[in-house]
């Protein structure tokens, strides 16, 4: 049994994978310290190796930008067991790139070969993350604060703030806005003067003051939302399928309906 423990950072995971691959070690599992409490023995800690990290990082980018993006997305899924899936995937990608006379086209095609379990499993993870990101492009709800800042709270399953921020930067460049992942205590804060955002730790915000008009627009939207449904076509199952209950808490239109 050999369980490799890392500090939860993406860079550390890449460094660890590089080291394992370089020394031809197949790990039983890879996890963060807090998840490894159940294991008393056989825990192995490797320190961050800048040189190996740099080499693997640039190598992966060189082989396929898409593959690299999938790895990042899978990491952001924060699901249990994603580390070993990333390790397996990196191995597949590297092995593929070392094949004799392999063309870029063939590499790209193989990376979509879902009959290969390492590829399928990683893609399933990244897909989950992309789907949730796409959902929240629509489900983020801003409230206007007294200083006109647009402020949104949400609690996504995956760590998607970084993936959402570029979209809102493009969409709302003339407003200051904050998207606040209150489950993780982080957020993206956009400053219209600088035309840029930062990702940072955010405390739970007590004493938020909304703008004078905010409540009126909330009510207008809530009523519109309720009335736009056609009663003869009522289909709550379909509604929940697209908009699961766990998201309702932070949606303006459902804030009063959520039990």
């Amino acid at each position: 049994m050999n369980i490799y423990v890392y500090d939860g950072n993406f860079d550390s995971l890449i460094s660890l994978c590089a080291e394992l691959i370089a020394s031809k070690i197949t790990p039983e599992n890879i996890m963060t310290e807090d998840k490894s409490h159940g294991y008393l023995f056989d825990k192995i800690y490797l320190s961050f190796n800048q040189n190996l990290y740099d080499r693997l990082n640039s190598r992966l980018n060189q082989i396929s930008k898409t593959a690299y993006a999938h790895i990042c997305a899978a990491f952001l899924s924060e699901t249990e067991g994603m580390e070993i899936k990333i390790y397996n995937y990196i191995q597949t990608v590297l092995r593929l790139s070392l094949e004799k006379n392999i063309s870029q086209q063939k590499i790209d095609d193989y990376l979509e070969n879902f009959a290969d379990s390492s590829i399928r499993e990683l893609n399933q993870l990244s897909k989950k993350v992309y789907i949730e990101r796409h959902r929240f492009l629509g489900l983020i709800r801003f409230s206007e604060l007294s200083d006109k800042t647009l402020y949104a709270q949400f609690e996504p399953d995956h760590n998607i703030s970084l993936l959402l921020a570029p979209h809102f930067k493009q969409r709302l460049p003339k407003d200051n806005w904050i998207i606040h992942d209150i489950a993780r205590g982080i957020g993206a804060v956009y400053d219209k003067e600088k035309n840029d955002y930062i990702l940072c730790g955010l405390e739970n915000t007590a004493g938020i003051i909304y703008s004078e008009e905010e409540n009126a627009f909330r009510q207008i939207w809530q009523r519109y939302w309720k009335e736009i449904a056609i009663p003869e076509r009522k289909n709550p199952k379909c509604q929940l399928n697209f908009m699961p209950k766990r998201y309702w808490k932070h949606l303006t239109e459902t804030e009063n309906l959520n039990r």
């Binding site: 629509g138 939302w225 309720k226 449904a229 076509r233 509604q239 697209f242």
Partner: peptide, 8 residues
């Protein structure tokens, strides 16, 4: 952005 009670 949202879904009404009719699932639309």
């Amino acid at each position: 952005h949202s879904w009404g009670e009719d699932g639309r």
